[in-house]
Design a protein around this nucleic acid. Structure first.
Lengths: 243, 243
DNA sequence: CGCACGGTTGACCTGTATCAAGCCGGGTGG
DNA sequence: CCACCCGGCTTGATACAGGTCAACCGTGCG
């Protein structure tokens, strides 16, 4: 199950040369600090599609930063219920929850072949004081995560199925755009089941809602290739009636 | 609206003499460190029931630690929809989300007269390096919050109304117990509307579900005085079938 | 004292779940 | 290379949980 493959892999790069650096570390580091950054990362691993990026239940206490690929995080109860908590792509940090409650188990599954940098908090602790803004950067990562979860709670708690799906698609689209991809053509990495779980719906409802969007010419959809063709209408369906 | 009342108030105490210290700061501080802790708190304020503990949208960047009282956090969209994100009592930290997204506005409302200590992160930044474990303690606070939100997403995403209400009551009960109160007699500080919003239900549904619980002798209820009389049955209704 | 708001309960309606059947595409083994 | 199968997905028919609308009551605040 735990199919972390050790290096080497072709994309092995130091942090200081990584093009994700500005997303994953504080900005404005001087040369001195930059050279220290590399020592934060204890490991760079590959995770193959369908496999879990495991977090040992206690004490792991590391930040997992996605270099390439796509993940979902899933919480499950001991009576077997699952809930997808989120999707994550390159530049995102996961593992912030740290020590987990004993009530639930949480796993992080690769939805495509991925590479991940592991930053143990103990390393952060050791050198953070000598790197300007690293602590507040970590805090920033946390607050991003909390804000993300807040908006998930919002749609889980108060939106109907159309609003949920529309919001989901728009969010996906803007994330794509931030990563330099087209905001109109989405390549869904997750199954309808994953989407359904994430949105608190059943997969049939997701299918039907997407079908409705197709019929009313808001989107085109072929398998997992989705094209947004009427963003305005989609936005007016979603909860955030802005831009 | 922003009814923070300045000191003095009778419960004015230094951190080092505060009985919440072990909950709100790292444990095992030496005397030297203890004396520094007080300088973390920039202000201790009162918030009267019904008033908001405001957070200025950007840059506030402070930790609000509840000394006494009870709060709810609410997110609202610009189209007027509200979602209660959580309830908080003494010892809890709020404001971890820090800078908020521009999409939603978030407020923290006192459900009873309360007192709050304000710890600006800038103060933390200044002295954290000289206090052992403060940084990791702050991280711990974040991870508590994230875990809390995860479990909210779980019931918002996958539970029916009975499970939601049962889980809610049991969670309330165990929180009470942790604070040294009876786990059987709950004094609900929040309205049915608040509960409903939190649980992603309508207030009528909350009422009816509670009525069902009363009829089947799981609880007694009079206004906001709630007594758990069949905890086992309640637990078997809730999602976590453990202890 | 009275009013407004929180809460309960009933009757009815609807959105989403549930159950079921069938399709398609990709991966596997013969 | 083809056939098969399985899992992901769609679509339809039906059921029901929870939402909606409405009336009413109690209580606590002004």
């Amino acid at each position: 199950m735990d199919m972390k493959l050790k290096l080497p892999y072709e994309t092995e790069v130091s942090c200081s040369k990584c093009n994700l650096l500005k997303k994953c570390m504080p900005t404005g580091l001087n040369h001195n600090e930059l050279t220290r950054i590399d020592s934060l990362v204890s490991q760079r691993i590959r995770v193959k599609r369908g496999n879990d990026l495991f977090r040992f239940n206690n004490g792991s206490q590391a930040l997992y930063i996605i270099r390439t690929g796509y993940f979902k995080t899933v919480i499950s109860t001991n009576d077997g219920r699952d809930q997808v908590l989120g999707f994550h792509m390159s530049g995102d940090s996961i593992g912030l929850a740290g020590e987990l409650s004993d009530l639930y188990s949480c796993r992080v599954t690769a939805l495509e072949d991925s590479t991940v940098c592991i930053v143990p908090f103990s390393n952060v602790e050791q050198i953070a004081n000598s790197i300007n803004g690293l602590h507040s950067h970590i805090r920033h990562l946390y607050s991003i995560e909390i804000n993300r979860e807040n908006s998930v709670m919002l749609f889980l708690g108060s939106m109907n199925s159309e609003e949920r799906v529309a919001t989901f698609l728009l969010k996906l689209s803007s994330t794509q755009e931030e990563h330099g991809f087209s905001p109109h053509n989405l390549n869904l990495k997750m199954s309808r089941y994953d989407i359904a779980s994430y949105l608190g719906l059943k997969h049939e409802t997701v299918s039907r809602t997407l079908a409705k969007f197709i019929k009313s010419k808001l989107i085109n959809l072929n398998l997992r290739e989705l094209k947004i063709i009427n963003r305005v209408a989609l936005t007016s369906l979603s909860i955030d009636k802005h831009h």
